[in-house]
Simulated assay, not measured.
Amino acid sequence: MSKISKFFKGNSNSSKKHGPTPQEAIHKLRETEEMLTKKQEYLEKRIEQELATAKKHGTKNKRAALQALKRKKRFEQQLSQIDGTLSTIEFQREALENANTNTEVLKNMSYAAKAISSAHENMDLDKIDSLMQDITEQQEIAQEISDAISRPAGFGEEFDEDELLAELEDLEQEDLDQHLVTAGGLPTVPSSSLPSRPASKKKVEVDEDMEQLAAWAS
């Protein structure tokens, strides 16, 4: 038998005997901790007093000094025992608190599980699958309708786009010609030749120099 099984079995036996609840046990342990803490404070004060008494008598009254030191030792032993007891009680209290927390967690988890079971009680998986299929089909139909609505109606698709562009160019050319005619017609090319450019004076002087050189050379 596992420790958990023994624990729950022990709890069932204790419940039959109407033992204390975890909350009651935790409360009692806290009261005990408070009492032992006060006892600690008392012993610490007594230890300080006995130490002061021993110092006061010293070697002048060895008997009284030794008795004070003996009492101090006993108080220190009691203080040490209380420290150990408090550690044990603290461990036991923490174990009870954890057990109480785990019990509440399990109780709430069981309550939630029952709620989930109740929520799923009237649910039929076959009906859910059928419903999801219907939803998927309706979504597909809606998508097809949206695609059909957004698709162009097809007007003009039987015409050649190149022919339409050529016709558009002809219309633009006709409009340009009409604009030129309205502005006064096309400009005419002049029939008479342009006047020749007179030779520069510098060129005439160069020709005369060349003639003089030619005459001298002959």
Rank of each mutant, 00 (worst) to 15 (best):
K3L: 15
S5D: 12
F7A: 14
F8A: 07
S14L: 09
S15Y: 04
K17H: 09
G19W: 00
E24L: 02
E24F: 01
E24D: 06
I26P: 01
I26H: 02
I26F: 01
R30I: 12
E33P: 01
K38C: 07
K39T: 05
E41A: 14
K45Y: 10
Q49V: 09
T53W: 01
T53A: 14
A54E: 02
K55Y: 04
K55H: 08
K56R: 13
H57W: 04
G58I: 10
G58N: 07
N61C: 11
K62D: 07
K62G: 07
R63M: 10
L69N: 09
K70Y: 07
K72L: 07
K72F: 00
L79W: 03
D83K: 14
I89E: 00
Q92T: 13
E94A: 12
E94C: 10
L96V: 01
N98W: 01
N98Y: 01
E104V: 02
E104C: 05
V105I: 14
L106V: 04
S110E: 08
S117Y: 11
A119Q: 06
H120L: 15
M123R: 05
S130A: 15
S130K: 14
T136V: 05
E137P: 00
E140M: 08
I141A: 09
A148V: 09
I149N: 10
P152K: 04
A153P: 11
G154A: 02
F155L: 13
F155W: 01
G156A: 02
E158R: 00
F159R: 00
E161L: 05
A166N: 06
E169R: 00
E169Q: 14
D175S: 15
L176W: 12
L180F: 13
T182H: 08
T182V: 11
A183V: 08
A183W: 02
G185P: 01
V189A: 06
P190Q: 00
R197P: 08
P198H: 03
A199T: 09
E208L: 15
Q212F: 11
A214H: 10
W216I: 12
A217D: 11
